[in-house]
Amino acid sequence: MSRVVLVTGTSRGIGCGLAQHFLDQGCKVAGCSRGGSSITHPSYTHFQLDVSDETAVLAMVRAVLETHGTIDVLLNNAGIASMNHLTLTPYASARKIFDTNFFGSFLFLRESAKAMIREKAGRIVNFTSVAMPLSLEGEAMYAASKAAVESLTRIASKELAPFGITVNAVGPCPVSTDLVAGVPEAKMQALLLRQAIHRYAGIDDVTNVVDFFVSEKSAFVTGQIVYLGGVGG
């Protein structure tokens, strides 16, 4: 039977690539973003919402359950970044980053986990970033929000283990997406030099780790954070 996969942030970048990847595997995919979707596939359903809007998240999860009966996999990908020196970071920007990156992940994790608890099975993958372990200058709010996601991942893995649900996180190094489009190339090259492997990640590098985490064989793998590119935790 094909699995039901919920992916947040599917309008472009990694989220769009993940949705396509699981559609190619025959899964039913429900995605969301603040805008419309570029994905047209008979097994794809798109929801237009803000991931930090609790009412909208509840409505989406309920709609997915009404349509498919379950959620097998949650990929908490939606994220935003805003590079700035912390003394120049507006409070509203800091709140917005945490709303999307942390509270959005929390809401989808909480609501999807409730469905998975009833099935006594499920796979949740959160998204962190190498910006966290590298403590990148100019990324204070982004890295802090990802640190919160990592803590959420570790604790959720313990709280949900009794129900057969695994919770892990993948931390991509820079991928050529819109998220880093505004960052000067010299800064990006300096960042790549801090990795063991000095190149951008591809979508395939991300899906490889995600595939491992969501595999039915990975029932004994939980609470783990895997960074790409050879960045240490």
Binding site: R62, L65, A113, K114, A115, I117, R118, E159, F163
Partner: peptide, 19 residues
């Protein structure tokens, strides 16, 4: 209690059409 909450929320959604 965690399992009961998840179960009842689903039943309320299914039987009453309410989240």
């Amino acid at each position: 209690i965690v399992a009961l909450v998840a179960e009842i929320e689903q039943l309320v959604s299914r039987d009453l059409g309410r989240s």
